[in-house]
Amino acid sequence: MARPFEKLPAGAKNHLEAMAANGLLSESAAATALGMPLDQLRKVITEHKPSKEIWENALAVERDQLLSALYARAMEGDTKANQTLLAVRHGMSEKQPRGSSERVSVVFNLPAALDPAEYMKAVRVEQEKLTNGSE
Rank of each mutant, 00 (worst) to 15 (best):
A10Q: 13
G11S: 08
A18C: 02
A18F: 01
M19Y: 02
A20E: 00
A21G: 10
L25A: 02
S26D: 02
S26A: 05
E27I: 09
S28W: 13
A30C: 11
A31S: 10
T32M: 12
A33P: 09
A33E: 11
M36N: 14
P37D: 14
Q40L: 08
R42H: 10
K43M: 15
V44G: 07
I45R: 11
I45H: 01
T46P: 01
E47L: 14
E47M: 12
E47H: 14
K49H: 14
E53H: 06
I54W: 03
W55F: 12
E56T: 04
N57C: 04
A58S: 06
A60L: 08
V61P: 00
V61A: 04
E62D: 04
L66A: 09
A72K: 14
R73D: 04
R73K: 07
R73G: 05
E76I: 03
T79A: 03
T79H: 08
A81W: 04
Q83A: 09
T84S: 08
L86M: 14
V88L: 03
R89Q: 12
G91A: 04
S93V: 03
K95F: 11
R98D: 10
R98K: 13
S101L: 06
S105I: 10
V106W: 01
V106C: 00
V107F: 03
F108D: 05
L110Q: 01
L110E: 00
A112H: 03
A113M: 07
L114E: 06
D115P: 11
P116Y: 01
E118Q: 11
E118G: 02
M120C: 07
V123W: 07
V125M: 09
E126D: 10
E126Y: 05
Q127W: 12
Q127A: 12
E128Q: 14
E128G: 08
G133Y: 13
S134F: 11
